[in-house]
Nucleic acid binder design. Structure first.
Lengths: 202, 202, 202, 202
DNA sequence: TATGAATGAGACTTCATTCAT
DNA sequence: TATGAATGAAGTCTCATTCAT
């Protein structure tokens, strides 16, 4: 249905902005002329659809998050087994970090996303929705764990969510500090993260 | 020795920049004129000590981190008992979040600090030092835990560090998403975080 | 015959432009998109009939002047008596001022109309025609005055024209400075203007 | 005392703007870069002293009017005799018209000055002051006329002011329509204007 | 013929940096 | 050494104009 929500031009602009961020350009450093060039539209066109550069970038981030969250969901669902699903989550994080997509990494592993680009604070409602969508992903993961009896202890839902995101963030931090710490392989980091998760939930 | 490293003016500039960030101003949005005003120096003076605005801000962040890390260290050392020390850590995180100091929060709970302000990537060496200083804090915490027999399992050091920072980040995320999730109190979040830590290390 | 000179669309555009000026919008501040909206035509249509925005506005002003001059002429002719005719002229001026139609006010009372919108200087020929049309109105007024013996002295035609327009401009200025000078009523200003005219022509 | 009211740069900017208007550039068509070049300052400097281009132009017009009004006053005072003083006024008008200074011409001969540049409507207070200063000039002229017994009739002050400005505007119109009407010389126009004035005040 | 989505030239404005004092 | 007035490069945004439909 998304194809009805946004016009072709809007999507071109969003994808241009996301491409710039993938190139490692900070949202604060993105220029309107860069967006126009990357999206193959005129500079003026951006202002036909958005009232300011900041609005365009904010909406592009939200658009990207929405899309990524669904991709994450489907990738997780497609995997069989609790461990495989969790490892898939970690692989996704690793990919985001490698592709400079700090925004998306932040989404999964850091509540501070709205600090990442100050103008996002105007879109709390949308961010809240994506947050609950991520909780759905976590629910799916937990359910699989219970069915497999990998998770045995029933704790309150807040604790369970915290357990998952803590394990993810622990892994994410490894990747963040990778340049400072070459001794540990990604495999080791994943093993450690999984161990944390299992201990937390048993 | 620090009093020899930086001149009075440099420190005034650093403190001005930090004060601006505490007011919630994003480092990308800080203007040289704001710094000059906040630091009570002329705009030209900033260029007598730094070659660019970005260098001044980067160095101010590093200066702030260095100072904060020491404060954290001493606050942790001053507390008696493993649990008390860990809770102090969580209180510090909470304070940073409330005071808009995303930078410092990032330091303790997120490896992505160099993504926070792109110009920090020129100072990997310094960041690495602060990172190892944080590991010292974690070592001190772990040692206390071992002595108290609250921690029993001996795991490799990477796992231990990850356990602590995961627990911290789990709590940090609670604060980040606080505006989306009003049901949980800070006390509950701290309890959950501590539970994660204990489980991880036993 | 005029109904053949301009197409329906052209007249819609002219009337749109005039409506905008009546709303108090300065010709320099009028935007093509405003004209299109006000005239209920597409923006492209304006360029089917005019080569530029400036041409459209200039022609609209000339169109408006032509129309207004004829209305003024007929309103003056419809009145009986020299004094009544002159007072009608003053009432018309007052209406123009109140309706923001500085252009038309300028027409009757100020030779500087071509300074009002610089692009009008390309239409000197048209302006000259309207100028002579106004002289016809003045001739009609003077003739009535002679017949009624309200005017007795025969002066050269240049002086007679100047006498009428001076009296009109004196009144016009009263209205222009109305916001600075609240003591005088419109009636008093009309009386003063008429007195000036009578003295000038006797 | 004026040298205290405005800084050197402000005066340079004002004079640059006035020079552009003297070249025949409409205030709406003046560009910031033109002002900067004409005033020999950087573009940014204009924004150190004014918040917008419109404010700079408005203030420049007011500055120009203030200065011109004083020049007019002193030129009138310096002349001996009623007729000489009035003719001097007409010469000044003629000079303003020839020098493209529609603004100043408007000041003396047309209440619509605030229609000339829409942003002047924010400065009604200043315009009002200049208006009363012009009335002082008119008072001086009238007094001379009474002393010389060239003026005999005592009318109310509003009528007297209207009489003078009507005569001036009649002359001004001659100049405005000069391009349409080549038969009359400036001398003849001045004679006609003076005749109007004398008749009006006797 | 009529349109309005798209364009991009060019305007205004900001602000990092310089330099005379 | 310290300043802040001045600068102009570079950014955002507007809007007259075009052209595919």
């Amino acid at each position: 249905m998304e194809h009805n929500l946004y016009s072709e031009k809007e999507i071109a602009i969003f994808e241009g902005i996301i491409a710039l961020m993938e190139k490692g350009i900070n949202p604060y450093s993105i220029k309107v002329s860069d967006i126009a060039e990357e999206a193959n539209v005129g500079k003026g066109t951006i202002y036909d659809y958005f009232t300011s550069k900041e609005e365009a970038i904010s909406q592009a981030i939200l658009f990207g998050i929405r899309k990524e969250v669904e991709i994450v969901y489907s990738r997780i669902k497609d995997k069989e087994g609790f461990k495989e699903k969790f490892y898939e989550l970690l692989h996704i994080i690793a990919e985001y970090i490698d592709s400079n997509m700090y925004v998306f990494r932040a989404l999964l592993s850091d509540g501070g996303i709205q600090k990442f680009y100050e103008y996002l604070s105007d879109y709390k409602h949308d961010l809240c929705q994506y947050f609950s969508r991520i909780n759905h992903i976590f629910d799916h993961l937990l359910e699989t764990g219970f069915n497999e009896k990998v998770i045995t202890k029933v704790e309150d839902s807040y604790y369970r969510y915290m357990a998952i995101s803590s394990a993810i963030m622990g892994f994410s931090q490894y990747f963040g500090y990778r340049s400072f710490n070459h001794e540990i392989s990604m495999e080791d980091a994943m093993t450690a993260s999984y161990k944390l998760l299992i201990k937390a939930l048993n």
